[in-house]
């Protein structure tokens, strides 16, 4: 390599680095192009009671994998839970998920999830709008109040426990999400 070409590289390299850092707000040199994260459920965890026979978990695995939009599944026997990763940009039907656990031979004991969605209202109640026509009502707690200050329409990442409220013995959509942590995008 002669002096001319070396000098050329010394100029070109910083200019390229400058252009890249301007193009990507993260400013990290060499960072991969990033897209805005899609809305949807990111991770869903079901507590599974009665999971004392791992050989019997085969049926549970079969049933859970049949739930629509499930991309990945891990069953943590010592923790008594199944952790599901939905397809990117989708939501799982939580009622279908609980039914799958029951059909698999066990008892669902609670669902926690991490999801990214848009704040909205459902019949006058604060809610989180997710893909696949999924709406989660937001329970009235301090985290929800803090989250609602960001205003309707904001895209947020939330973590919390989803429960199906029962009224006079009847259940109905949608699930209620009790938020334990959140981030505003």
């Amino acid at each position: 390599m002669n002096h001319l070409s070396l000098r050329r590289y010394l100029y070109v390299f910083p200019i390229m680095a400058l252009l890249l850092s301007l193009a990507h707000p993260s400013g990290a040199l060499g960072a991969l192009p990033t897209q805005r994260p899609e809305a949807g459920m990111l991770e869903v965890t079901v507590q599974v009671d009665g999971l004392s026979c791992p050989f019997c978990a085969y049926g549970l695995e079969k049933k859970l994998k049949k739930v629509e939009n499930v991309a990945d599944l891990s069953i943590q026997v010592d923790q008594g839970r199944a952790v599901l990763t939905p397809e990117v940009g989708t939501s799982l039907d939580l009622e279908e998920l609980e039914k799958a656990v029951r059909d698999g031979g066990f008892t669902p004991h609670g669902i926690t999830l991490i999801a990214r969605g848009r704040l909205t209202e459902f019949n006058g109640v604060p809610a989180l709008e997710l893909p696949n026509d999924t709406v989660l009502l937001l329970s009235d707690n301090a985290e929800t109040s803090a989250l609602l200050e960001s205003g309707s329409g904001a895209v947020v990442r939330v973590e919390g426990q989803a429960t199906l409220e029962s009224k006079d013995g009847h259940t109905g959509h949608p699930y209620t999400l009790s938020i334990s942590a959140f981030e505003i995008d």
Partner: peptide, 10 residues
């Protein structure tokens, strides 16, 4: 001795 992740040899 501790069954963590399903499936595991048993």
């Amino acid at each position: 001795r501790v069954y963590r992740m399903y499936p595991a040899k048993q």
